[in-house]
Nucleic acid binder design. Structure first.
Lengths: 208, 208
DNA sequence: GCGTGTGAACATCTTCACAGCA
DNA sequence: TGCTGTGAAGATGTTCACACGC
């Protein structure tokens, strides 16, 4: 009975949710308002929201509170997911200290690093553990998502270990591509890629 | 005379380039090999690469060296772009120390922070400057891209200042949406969004 | 009247299947 | 023969335009 929300819509729902969270004080909003804020077309907003059901009121708009709830529900944010962050260099530390997780229903349930000098440090209320503890921690704490923030050369091994102990969702910040078996979802966040796409547009502007 | 490389292709070219860079020691590759590594369809790889021109050899494959050059050229990486990083908290520091920029033709040309305690620190070979220096630095150093790594509440102001002094490309790490005039390109990198998309898939799996 | 919800038109992207050339 | 390059088909995503119901 689950509705098949299109990929493209799933990618935008977090954006709408963020905008709505920032405007939780106002009672109502409209597809037009959300569209302007999100920088997209109003019809797209309506179509996206219609995949969740009919929660708007014709001639009036959407109830902000209800829409927040429905988006959270559609995204599965009503239950919390547990993260393990592997690698606590600058980036891993930034992630560990990032407060935005909690609001979205995500909780950091473990910090791991292969460097003995880093093990034992306190970060964002947790203590960094040796990477050897990873498997046991994933099982005991029911970790759902692995956040890979290690150097590129170590990323594949970390991913293998995560997959090996049952993790099916990986967020990869290492500037490399990791291979995983089918059924495991990886999202790559790569700074170089983002910059290169920006660079392409500058290049186009410069070339015209 | 510039070819209009489709958006979707531009997004994948950095990925191919990264894979090729990792395999710079081998002389040749094929669409099939790249496809497996990138986790996409081989026909897609061929079509993507065909937008750059016909640099493959039928029956043989692609010359790795040449392909790297052509992708770099298509993306405009033959000239370097200069970055300013605004905000040197954990994330900004991670970015400042990130070595992957240089390889892609990007150079960090300035670090800025509003916090007097952070001004003067050395990071990745640069000294953190007060945010008040931003406009002058952008002009004098020819900064092309602004990297926004400040808290959400400060992001819009920073973006306004960047736009105000002529920056037309912004990479936004702040968990908020910034409004910019037409002609300015913003790319958002948002950890919550990534996690929420992963969470949706877990949710689907769990619900079935 | 007004803003949602949605079929239909349009645009873009992906995949197939095979012609073309080394 | 083998792999590229590419029309054509198919899938997905976007936008339009208007019926619908408050």
């Amino acid at each position: 009975m689950k509705k098949p929300v299109p990929r493209a819509t799933v990618q935008r729902l977090p954006l709408y949710l963020q905008l709505l969270d920032e405007r939780a004080d106002q009672p109502r909003t409209s597809s037009e308002e959300l569209a302007v804020l999100a920088g997209v077309n109003a019809a797209k907003v309506r179509k996206d929201l219609s995949f969740l059901g009919s929660y708007g009121t014709r001639g009036v708009g959407y109830d902000v509170e209800q829409l927040r709830f429905e988006i959270r529900r559609a995204l599965g944010l009503t239950r919390g997911w547990r993260l393990a962050i592997i690698g606590v260099g600058n980036l891993g530390s930034a992630l560990a200290n990032y407060g935005g997780f909690r609001a979205g229903g995500f909780g950091v349930a473990g910090l791991f690093d292969a460097d003995p000098d880093k093990v034992g440090r306190d970060l964002g209320g947790l203590t960094v553990e040796p990477i050897e503890h990873l498997e046991q921690a994933v099982k005991e704490r029911g970790i759902d998502i692995g956040v890979v923030a290690v150097p590129a050369r170590a990323a594949q091994e970390v991913a293998d270990r995560l997959v090996g102990c049952g993790v099916r969702s990986i967020l990869n910040f290492a500037p490399t591509v990791i291979q995983v078996p089918e059924g495991v979802e990886v999202r790559r966040v790569d700074l170089s890629t983002e910059l290169q796409v920006l660079g392409y547009h500058l290049h186009l502007l410069a070339g015209v």
